[in-house]
Design a protein around this nucleic acid. Structure first.
Lengths: 110, 110
DNA sequence: TCTTATACTTCATCTGTCGTAGTAATTTTA
DNA sequence: TAAAATTACTACGACAGATGAAGTATAAGA
C-alpha cells in the first residue's frame, strides 16, 4: 500500500527501531515490517539490504554470522551505541517533520 | 533545521497546499514555507523550481506570466482540478504514513 | 521430486535534491 | 547617486536512495 517516496528517509530508522528490540537479520526484519504495519508497508529486499550496508558503514549497526544448522547463512545485525544515538536523533526529527508537514497538509484542510 | 531526506516526498504536496489558497509564484512560495514552518524548513530554490516543472508536466498546476509593472517577470502558478485531486490523495497517504511510521518510531519508545 | 519458502547479492536505471553559478531587474541604504 | 541587498528566476552536473530484474543457493513441505 504505502511505498517508496513517502517512506524514504525513514527506512533506516524503521530498521533501527526493530533492532532496538533484538538483533535480527534481513528476512525477518522484512516480515516484521510487513506484519507490524498491517501489510500497509512492504520494504523491498533491495532497499532493505542496501540499508544494512549503509547503516553498517556508519557504525550504527554491526553484523555477525549465524547459520542455524549451517549451510544457510544468515547475517545478523545488532544496533550499536552510536546507532541508538542516531535513532533518538531521528526520532526527534520525525516529531518535528510531523509538526511541519501537518502545518501545511492537515491542519490546513478538512 | 529540517531538510531534504525527511521532507522528500512531501515537497510537492506542500507546494500544492499553498496554491490551494491562492495562485502564487516561486519566491513567495519559498517565503511562505519558511514562515509557516517557523523557520524550521527552508525549501531550496532548485528544489522548488524543479517541483514546479514536474507539477506542471503532470497538469497538477498551470502557469501564467504576470509582471507587476513589467520587466521583472514572475511566473504564477495555479492549482488545477487534477491537482486538487492529487492533493487529497497525498493527504490521505500522509495520514497513513504517520500511522505506520509511528507504529515503529514513536509508539515503540519513550 | 517438485514446489515453495528462506536468505541473500549484483547491477543498471531513475528520480528528486543539492551545490554552484549565473542573469537581471528593482528596491534599499549609505 | 552609487553600491548593496533583495527579488525572481534558470542551467547544469553530481549524488544518494529506491527500484526492477535477475540470479544463487539451501531447506522444508507436499
Amino acid at each position: 500500500m504505502l511505498s517508496s517516496d513517502t517512506m524514504r528517509g525513514y527506512n533506516d530508522t524503521i530498521i533501527l527501531s526493530l533492532l532496538l528490540e533484538e538483533p535480527s537479520y534481513g528476512y525477518e526484519i522484512a516480515k516484521r515490517i510487513k506484519e507490524r504495519s498491517n501489510n500497509k508497508y512492504v520494504m523491498k529486499e533491495t532497499t532493505l539490504y542496501s540499508a544494512f550496508t549503509r547503516l553498517e558503514k556508519h557504525d550504527y549497526i554491526c553484523s555477525f554470522q549465524q547459520g542455524k544448522t549451517m549451510g544457510r547463512r544468515r547475517t545478523y545485525y545488532e544496533i550499536t551505541a552510536k546507532g541508538r544515538n542516531y535513532f533518538d536523533q531521528k526520532h526527534q526529527e520525525w516529531l518535528l517533520t510531523q509538526e511541519v508537514v501537518n502545518q501545511f497538509i492537515t491542519d490546513n484542510r478538512l
